[in-house]
């Protein structure tokens, strides 16, 4: 579980996050949504420890990142997996090497043991036939699967995903969303996903927080997001023509 209290962060005197307080539960897919520039990515990078908050605290299962020694911070980071928006796979490494990388860096396992684990994880993300390919030789959807495999190979306690289905076709996006949800439940990890894709919200949004201009504007689950009377949230949700048409149809009783 991750608990965030009164989180503030700014750059060059400009406040980006303005006192965010929320929590993300274990075994659930927690979504951060909001328009571009609402502070989603900065918030996610604060959760990852890449940005140091100016004020407030983040507790990972009761442990404050900022109060840890550098060595303990590194140890905590090794319990985090991250799926970047552009996958961030290492270009010069094959799929297998990319997934094996965290194991090589942080474990003393033999190569055969590492390969066994890598193959199991690649199988879990349905990528059995691309072990020896370079990231440039596989599709965007496959790259996302490799990124997920690399993020979970060390069995992390926390999984962070920055727009995991951006640039993917709708069908692949749903597959990736469901894969993340399944892994969250299977590994019993705390998953935080940064997205502005309403389809993801509908598919996997067990807890949703809505950011606007650095504030936590609203939080709830995917059933509540369609019934809320918060104008900022409804404006965001119904900016999608599809959802607008669904709502209009519902209102007309169709």
């Amino acid at each position: 579980m991750i608990e965030v209290t009164n989180l503030h962060k700014g750059f060059n005197g400009e406040a980006i996050l303005k006192g965010i307080t929320t929590s993300f539960e274990r075994g659930k897919t927690n979504l951060i949504i909001g328009t571009s520039g609402s502070g989603k990515t900065v918030f996610l990078k604060c959760l990852l420890g890449l940005f140091v908050p100016e004020e407030g605290s983040i507790l990972y299962d009761g442990i404050s990142y900022t109060n840890l020694s550098p060595e303990e911070q590194r140890s905590l980071r090794q319990q985090m997996g991250m799926v970047f928006q552009g996958s961030a796979l290492f270009d010069s490494m094959t799929v297998e090497e990319n997934v094996m990388f965290p194991l090589q860096m942080f474990t003393k396992q033999k190569k055969t043991e590492m390969l066994e684990r890598v193959h199991a994880v690649l199988e879990r993300v349905n990528l059995e036939n691309a072990h020896k390919k370079l990231p440039s030789e596989i599709s965007g959807g496959m790259q996302k699967r490799v990124a997920i495999a690399r993020a979970i190979v060390t069995r992390p306690k926390y999984l962070f995903c920055d727009e995991p289905n951006s640039g993917l076709d709708p069908r692949t996006a749903i597959v990736i969303d469901n894969l993340i949800k399944e892994i969250t439940e299977e590994y019993d990890i705390t998953t935080v996903i940064n997205t502005h894709d309403m389809n993801s919200v509908m598919e996997i949004g067990e807890k949703i927080i809505f950011l606007q201009k650095g504030h936590l504007e609203w939080e709830g689950d995917k059933s509540q997001i369609f019934t809320t009377d918060n104008k900022a949230v409804t404006d965001f949700v119904y900016s999608s023509n599809l959802f607008k048409k669904v709502r209009d149809a519902q209102l007309k009783g169709l």
């Binding site: 890449l50 911070q73 090794q78 991250m82």
Partner: peptide
């Protein structure tokens, strides 16, 4: 520079490297 642009350096940092 390309590693920076494509967030590969961020990926290393997140892993605690």
């Amino acid at each position: 520079g390309t590693m920076r642009v494509t967030e590969q350096i961020d990926a290393l940092e997140v892993m605690g490297i």
